[in-house]
Each structure stands twice: as structure tokens, then as C-alpha cells.
Design a protein around this nucleic acid. Structure first.
Lengths: 217, 217
DNA sequence: CGAAAGGCGTACCGTACGTTACGGTTCGGC
DNA sequence: GCCGAACCGTAACGTACGGTACGCCTTTCG
């Protein structure tokens, strides 16, 4: 299990200019993948390499900062857990599913995951940990309270929130992420995402919904 | 969707020596990741770099051949579809799930997927396609007949074998592969794999099993 | 206004690595 | 025994790129 406190408030310590530079680096990362050069970043950001090195130390530092920067931008709003009936629970789950599918199919997510996966082998930096922390684990952190609340309200039945979450994760993501990462063109329109989110949610409810009545499959 | 005919009978066109070299490259790939050098491969395989270039063209050619070589080794035996009752179907599914989990958690699979993902960005070679073809798509090809047979026998109910397969895929894999690729240490003992395989199978049956009787969840 | 700081652009250095070239050795065929 | 082919080991070449140094400009502050 990963620990790693990624609570560094990057948004504070970074000046406007630095953020702009990181945005440039991010765009370049999406376009070029891991084989982006410091010179390219400098040119794209209209800054000197010397500045890059002064600010971020070295290439790994720049990559690290870039990934963290993107991560800090994705901090989402926690869900409000007020009226809780089957309808609102279903809606929440569908929302989560749809959001997640949109994230993992986005260009920047794909690019970031690719880079992080590539770096995961040689333990030079913690890119994998950062991505994981702001992706899969952040999702779990936000979703679990909803699941727990659903259980409290008698709408869901499960032993462990973690395993319930992982099942939901699997039902939503299926083979999408690995296929995208490996370069397969998966058709993911707004419509299919919506359909997949509904399907995954219904399947999840079929598996973990309280058996108080027949649930539409 | 990927097409790509990967039916090149590599095992024929490769001499013993060449296979040995590729095995060395493969081992090195597992240890070093994508940053393996031609010199390292040559040294490990006790061959000259000139030979490497004569045989495989260039570095990408060597990587390609290595991945294909590993892929050709994994050609599995098709399932025999004889007596088909719920018990044997369940057993088959559990077997598939367990095998798949073992594969994706193996060192070589992780290494190969990492390299393929890394290369997927810059469309220089088709490593991603190859890995996908011999991983996820090969699994579908082998599993779908089983699902169809299950439906024929009245044990399963589904519209489309593809979507049924993808659900099974998701239930089995969940977050395991992406976590492993990103460097997370997922505890995957023989026991947990067995448990996960059983759980995934039961969940799949709960979703797609014919409603002739109550199924244990 | 002058000086110092921050930053841009560019030239430069060192190294790692892909690729090529070459001398030496083994081995099958005549 | 001799020849050529295949191959090993290693040296050498070229380049790309990470990292550094320096000249010049702009802004800021005394």
C-alpha cells in the first residue's frame, strides 16, 4: 500500500509564471510523451533552461512538479450527503462512474499515466505513487463515504467498503484504461460514457443493493 | 479497434541461438525496464552488437522481436467444451480468472506492459498492439466460446458476448493491473488470487447467470 | 540615476548510447 | 589443410540531450 503524503500545497508556493511554465510542460507532455526535452519545454514556455533548472532542480524535478501541478488542479468538490434514497444514490454512483470514465479517457490523464508507468520501473521518482494517489485512491476516498452512507440508509449491503469500491471500480473501468494506455482507440463518446456509467451502476446495485425488493438489472 | 495479424510463426523463423538472445533481452527487460542498452543485451547474451543489428535491424526491432517472442510462448491450450453444467462452467470461469490474475501480476507481464505503454505514445512501433493482442484480446477470444456455450446451455443470459466478457474482465482485474503498472505493491498470494477468482466468478454469475434458481452471492 | 536581481536566449560541455567498423576466432564444406 | 561465412569482443563515431555558463535586457529598489 502506498502512503506518501501529497498534501504539499503546490498552488501556494508556485508563482503565476511557474504555473504557466508547468502548463506548457504539461501540454508538451501530452503531445510528446516522456521524450520531451528540457530545451523543448524551455522554448515552449519561453523561458531559459537555466530558469528551469533553478526552479525545478533537474529533469525529474520538472516532471514531478508537472504531475503534481496537474494533480492539484483536479482537486474536486466532496459530495454532499444529504437526502439519501435509492434515486439519489444511483445518481451519485452514475456521476462518479461517468466522471471517472471522462478522466481516464482524457488526453492528459493518458499522457500522465503513460509517463508514470514508464517511470515506475526505475524507482527514481514517485510519479506512479502521485498519479495513483490522485487517481484511483482519491476516487476511493470520495466514493467510500457515499457507499457507507448507502449502507447506513439500508440501501447497500457489504462487508468491506474497500472491496465494494474495488468492484465498482472494475465494473466502471473494465478494460478501458489499459486499452487506452496501450494505444487502442476506444470509442468513448459522451453517449457511450453515459450508458456505461448507468450499466456499471446498475450492475453494482444488483450485486450490493439491499435485497428489499427487485432491482432492475 | 485493433486489427493487426500477429500470426507470424516466430517460433519457426528463429534459430535456437536467436531465441536464447531474445530470452536474455527479455530477462534484461524485466530487470532494467525500457532503459536497457544494446551493449547490455549483447553482454548478457554473449553475442556481439553487430549480430544484434544484423538480426533485428535496430533497437526497436529488437524490442519488437522480444515482445513477440514472449507472446509466442504464451499461446495457451483452448478450453475443451464438453460436459457443460453450472459446476464446470463455474470452474472454467474461476480458472480463467485465476490464470489472468497470475499473468498480469507476473514480473514479465508487468515489464512488457510498462514498455508497451511507454512506447504507445510515439507511434514508432506496435508494441501496445502486440501486447493487447496477446493479452486482453487473446483472453476474450478464448473466453467468449465458453460464455456462448454457457448461454446455449441455458446457464447464462446476455445480449452480447463482448460486453459480458468486458464485465467479467472488470470484475476480475478491478484496479490490480493499473496499480501494479504504477508501481503499487499489491499483495497477490496464491490464496488471494484464488479468492478473487471465486468472488469475481460468483459476481459474474449473479449478474449474467440464468434466473432459474437462487445463486449464492 | 545606478546597481543588483531575475530572467531570456544561446552557446557550450560531458556523457550516454545507438550504430558502425574491424580484427580475431570458430566451423562447415571442399 | 584451406576458404569463406558467421560470429564474438571491442573500439570508434555521431548525435541527442541533460546540465552549466555567460551576455544581455528588463524591472525594481535605494
Amino acid at each position: 500500500m502506498l502512503q506518501l503524503d501529497v498534501e504539499i500545497d503546490t498552488s501556494e508556493t508556485l508563482t503565476e509564471r511557474q504555473q504557466a511554465v508547468l502548463d506548457a510542460a504539461l501540454r508538451l507532455l501530452v503531445e510528446e510523451g516522456d521524450n520531451l526535452t528540457m530545451t523543448a519545454v524551455a522554448r515552449r514556455a519561453s523561458c531559459s533552461k537555466e530558469t528551469l533548472y533553478k526552479w525545478f532542480g533537474d529533469r525529474d524535478g520538472l516532471l514531478n512538479a508537472t504531475v503534481q501541478w496537474q494533480a492539484s488542479k483536479v482537486r474536486v468538490t466532496p459530495v454532499d450527503r444529504k437526502g439519501l434514497d435509492l434515486a439519489s444514490l444511483t445518481a451519485s454512483l452514475e456521476r462518479f462512474a461517468s466522471d471517472w470514465l471522462k478522466v481516464i479517457s482524457s488526453d492528459t490523464s493518458i499522457a500522465l499515466n503513460r509517463v508514470a508507468v514508464g517511470h515506475a520501473g526505475s524507482g527514481k521518482d514517485d510519479l506512479g505513487a502521485i498519479v495513483l494517489q490522485n487517481g484511483r485512491f482519491a476516487l476511493a476516498k470520495r466514493l467510500k463515504p457515499v457507499l457507507e452512507a448507502g449502507r447506513q440508509a439500508g440501501l447497500l449491503e457489504f462487508e468491506d467498503a474497500e472491496t465494494a469500491f474495488r468492484t465498482f471500480f472494475g465494473l466502471v473501468g473494465r478494460d478501458v484504461q489499459i486499452r487506452l494506455l496501450l494505444g487502442d482507440r476506444v470509442e468513448l463518446t459522451e453517449a457511450t460514457i453515459g450508458g456505461d456509467a448507468r450499466r456499471a451502476t446498475q450492475q453494482f446495485l444488483a450485486l450490493f443493493g439491499a435485497k428489499t425488493g427487485p432491482l432492475a438489472l
